[in-house]
Amino acid sequence: MEKFGTARYQKMLNDIGELGVENLFGFLGKVQDTFGYVPREVIEDTARRTGLSPSRIYGALTSYRDFNLKLEGDG
């Protein structure tokens, strides 16, 4: 698990090429597996890039057992 950083996140975005609705779920899964959670700024940024609303992404993520919005044990 890595500490969340903008540079690392940018690299992940570059690796995936173009982010769209077609690869968003897989990408968010990678973010979760890399940092241990999906930070708020990632929800906002991916929403901007895909044209979905942040609430839609938030609603989806909170319904899955293996997605976290906070780092576990971080209050």
Binding site: F25, G26, L28, R56
Partner: peptide
């Protein structure tokens, strides 16, 4: 795609919803 821990995603419509980030 790595599943995120829900049994229901094995059902085809639920699987599709999941890939649509729902």
């Amino acid at each position: 795609i790595k599943g995120k821990g829900l049994y229901i995603t094995g059902e085809e419509c639920a699987l599709i919803s999941s890939l649509e980030t729902r």
